[in-house]
Amino acid sequence: MRGRHRRKLGDVTMSDKSTDAYWKANVRIITISMVIWALVSFGFGIVLRPLLSGIPIGGTDLGFWFAQQGSILTFIVLIFYYTWYMNRLDKEFGVEE
């Protein structure tokens, strides 16, 4: 779907429509990432911890693991996924440096 907006390399000016589409795609991936960001920290790590109490892990439960380890590891994965996704998006829209 994004392929429709593909530009040739060296095409400096983008139409407004194309800029909008690029920005919309960016905001979309940010929104999805933020949902996961909140889910693993505020969700699994704090508010939803009682729901995960049935899943034991090393003397405690999954919520404790998310609060002290899992959320941090997820944050790292999120940033690198976003970086990879945006590099691809930049190229598709011909806006990479």
Binding site: I30, S33, M34, W37, S41, G45, F64, A67, Q68, S71, I72, F75, L78, I79, Y82, T83
Partner: peptide, 21 residues
Amino acid sequence: GYGNSTFLMGWTGGYVLLAML
């Protein structure tokens, strides 16, 4: 104990905001 996990999540989660926003 568990209650101060806030520092771990809070001081790392900010980097996701930095990277994306």
